[in-house]
Amino acid sequence: MSEATSPEIKIDNFDAWYGDFQALQRITATIAPNHVTALIGPSGCGKSTLLKWINRMNDLVPSARCSGTLQIGQLNALDRATDVVALRRRVGMVFQKPNPFPKSIYDNVAFGPRLHFQVNQAELDELVEWSLRKAALWDEVKDRLRKPALSLSGGQQQRLCIARAIAIGPEVLLMDEPCSALDPSSTAKVEDLIYELRANYTIVIVTHNMQQAARCSDTTMFFYQGQVVECGPTQQVFTRPQQRQTEDYVTGKYG
């Protein structure tokens, strides 16, 4: 896996609905490879909806529909014929609340590889260690891999979830407010990790935390009422926003 293989995500003329409610309107954007792209905006602006269409998690919501194109590298993510299992192998996800399985630390990381790969024990051990090192958790858990994952602290649990996600070798990582349930020091660790991981992955992160977006993203997209109001280098969006609405939001006038 060379460093350049992470794909670009191209979104074109994308609309999304829940029932009659249109959650996203005419989104056109390109999410760059090996970048961290932060999606920001007030609650209900549609940023999570977009995230959940990238790996088709919205298939699980009966009333969710969409139109337009969403392309991950060469793969058309929205095509009915696209195998969601294959899609989700390429697009990993980390959730708002740490959600480790009630299994051991080792088995949490090994869960995905066991589903997808034919591996022997040595390869699995190697993979689990690699994933945990990559998620900056190895040193803290290497002596207790067989202990229950739920015995870890919240921040450790979230890094474990990241390790679990990268253990099947995805190219894209989606993160839905991954630090909102964590304390500041755990948040700092996860943010550092996110920034490191962009060397190998295309990362899309939804956040409500302006500082977080400023700290760990390269590109920021500001959503308001289902539309992308502004998209640009994070530095620019925060210091010289082009749109009035963006300025109001990033400076905390509303939101």
Binding site: M1, V119, E126, L127, E129, W130, G169
Partner: peptide, 8 residues
Amino acid sequence: PGALLQKR
């Protein structure tokens, strides 16, 4: 790791 270099 090997398992990710060559995914079987």
